[in-house]
Nucleic acid binder design. Structure first.
Lengths: 185, 185, 185, 185
DNA sequence: TATGAATGAGTGTTCATTCAT
DNA sequence: CATGAATGAACACTCATTCAT
């Protein structure tokens, strides 16, 4: 129940609740309650709601970093990319209910003038960079274009999976993407 | 300016402003002002904010219907699909600033418990159905899967184009999708 | 109970309550209650608390203008100045409880970074200008200095009258100032 | 840094910050920071914010006592009064920015129901008493009235100097007051 | 004594919705 | 039909004060 732990608990709760309810529909009280912290105390750790949103983005960035780190040991770039896709598919039930955490955040924050939209963009760029590196390792000189296309495919199918509340959409698209990756060398 | 005209003006203003600012950040006053209608008068035409959102969705559905109608005379399904893609690319500057109108609406409404999310879903389904019909006409028995993939690709690249504020992303992906369509028969 | 009337009622209530309680200790709810207006409705007329404060200052400026206008018909500048002093003395009971409305506002607003302090300053300057004009009419070439001194004397005795809750202080000083004015030609 | 030293540091910081920012706009955190004392620790020395305000008043009272003590050795009451006035004028730059420390405190505390307003009043009364003693020593039987007038003149010109942010006002009025004192025997 | 952390009541402000005319 | 005005339930944020260690 100590300081640092609480800060993380708040950031984690923020990441979760903001994903589930969206930024605008989430009140500070919601986050405080989810973290089991009195509302007034939230401000000891985060001076504004925006800072909480930023912390939530950071939490997602951390998660992404870990995901990538877990993928790196795999023997080939194709394997790494297909494992990434499989990870997306594994999250299809959550996506069906709430969409992609990063994507829905990006969609919402783009409507605002804060610098927060730049922060999400940076997180996304990092993942695209990593994907690009894999395609480059596969010898593709259109690696950037392919990386954008792959990530866009995921973002798009996340949105549809969520809109139609149908996890199968993600599963099917995942299989298609795996086949597509295999077809590229 | 009679009733019906005002109603449409309001729906149109709603569609525009909701796309630009998002549902949650748009006030009724914003829409009323954009339509040059006194705030109090809005409620004569729409009993709740949700009904205005619904009208905005309907406006988008109309627009989509017209788009499709304009495409149907084209000689082949490949041509129709590629023209659809070209239409998306033509809207890349708007997408860079505000994303896809339908997609951003869907993302935001999915966070709510209204039936409004079902309404956007229906609009999207209609377009996917049309795309599917084209793939079927091309002789593909995986037409549904391809339709979902194509529309997802558009939704995804819209999000990225918006997030990175870079219309070129959409242009590049458009060319890729056209090549992909050509490769399918 | 119409719009314009309500706006004035709010400004009047603000002037009164802000004088009695001070700016910082007065809540919008206080002013709303004093004007018998629901809190939310205040914002239809004034977008911020600061605008209410400004309206209160304007109300005081109006009052000052009227005071001066009532003085101008008097036959000589000495008479006008002494009548001004007598007006101050007449308000000694209010001063004993709450100080000078303009002075206490000035003291409080000077602690802030708004432009509001400039607004009060302007009101004060207008009165000093008028006093200066009287001294000039009396043939004094140190009219400005005398005007500042006279107004300062009033502000100072207002503060002391308020601090010691003793209206007599104001009365005594008023007599002294009248004698002083008489001694100047 | 032991207890007593800290207590004084806090009182001094309170006096300074309260003068600069006003009572209502100053938070305990502000004072704690100015005194370089952790917020939580303030309450070991002062149980409430009001007690800190009281300590600040006491600090001012001390300062006033010292001022008077330094004046007493002067050979004549006229000299002592004029030296007092010159001291006021010396502080004109601070007055232009923040007003008279005691006066602005008095103005603000009079809006409250605490006994604190009585405490400032007592400090002021002590100085008026001393001024009165000088006028009495000059043989005036209207010494009280003159004392009140002189102190009021200072308070008033402090307020105007502050409101118009013009130290020259204080300088001019100081010269006038010195001439006035000379004219009284 | 010392201190980071906790707490909760209060404040200004926004906005969908309703109402009187 | 039209409209300015009214309403009240939120919400983000602040801060004096208290507590645990």
């Amino acid at each position: 129940m100590r300081g640092p732990g609480k800060r993380e608990r708040l950031a984690g709760a923020a990441a979760r609740v903001l994903h589930e309810q969206g930024v605008e529909r989430t009140t500070l009280a919601d986050i405080a309650q989810a973290a089991d912290v009195p509302v007034g105390n939230v401000y000891y750790y985060f001076k504004t709601k925006d800072q909480l949103v930023e912390a939530a983005i950071d939490t997602q960035a951390d998660h992404l970093r870990k995901t990538i780190t877990a993928l790196d040991p795999l023997p080939s770039p194709e394997e790494r990319l297909k494992a990434l896709v499989r990870g997306w598919v594994d999250g299809r039930d959550v996506a069906a209910r709430f969409g992609c955490p990063t994507g829905s955040l990006a969609a919402e924050l783009d409507k605002r003038a804060d610098g927060l939209d730049r922060t999400v963009a940076a997180v996304m760029r990092r993942l695209i960079d990593w994907i690009e590196a894999q395609f480059t390792a596969m010898g593709r000189d259109d690696a950037r274009e392919l990386a954008v296309a792959l990530f866009a495919a995921y973002q798009g199918i996340s949105l549809l999976t969520n809109t139609f509340r149908d996890p199968e959409l993600m599963a099917t698209e995942g299989r298609r993407l795996e086949r597509w990756i295999d077809s590229l060398h």
